[in-house]
Amino acid sequence: MRKLIRADLRRVCRKPSMWILMAIMIIVQFFDVLTITDEPMEQVLTSARNRFGLTFMLIITIFIAISVLSNDRNSNSWAYDIGIGIGRRKLIWAKAIVFVILMVIFYAVLVPERLFFYAVTSLPLSGRQLSLLVVYAGLQVIRGVSVLIIDMLVDILTDSTALAILANVAQVVFITLGTRMAALFYNVNIGDYTPDGLVENAYNNIAAGRFPWQLIVVLLIYVGAVFAVAAAVFRNKELQL
């Protein structure tokens, strides 16, 4: 499994698009910080969280879905890997771990970069505020992994990475915005049961010094249970040559 993970990470990191995207996001963050004027610091942090939680989340998860799921499908590498003796369980676990590592790579670059620009521009953010921003970004890694695991299930069920990407966009944009609007306009809190809502509430609990039990729900259900279903479906799936 380690060999498969290493091979996948190496080939994804060789994609120029990965570094171009990274550079674009770095530049976007630079301008985000540059254009801060007299906003209250809470507003600054809210904007940063929106950037990490929506814009970057969408870009990063779509990139990872394309680079792993789509490229694998186009190359039929899963069939090849199984044909040379890689077990199906190992294969699917390896892909999930690659999702985690790639999410961490992106946020491990973007978060320090933003903090660096805050420091350079001498924004009056407290240590606690900055720590909470780092925690929020970390929670987005978990949320991103849950999005990608669902993408993988859709890909396996439908044999279509296009549908997996649609599921990705639906999760990150439509469901997130839809549930937030439902809460805002209709006072219906269905968002509390989505990964986005659960992660937001987990963050609020951490900020308030309470235990973020919502994370356990995300990990058990949206990551663990969905992954188990994907693995079960994949175990018996007929693959084409």
Binding site: R11, R14, N74, S75, N76, G83, I84
Partner: peptide, 13 residues
């Protein structure tokens, strides 16, 4: 086993 059953490459590599 080594096998060739069609192309299994990453086209960008």
């Amino acid at each position: 086993i080594g096998f060739f059953v069609g192309h299994s490459f990453f086209s960008y590599l």
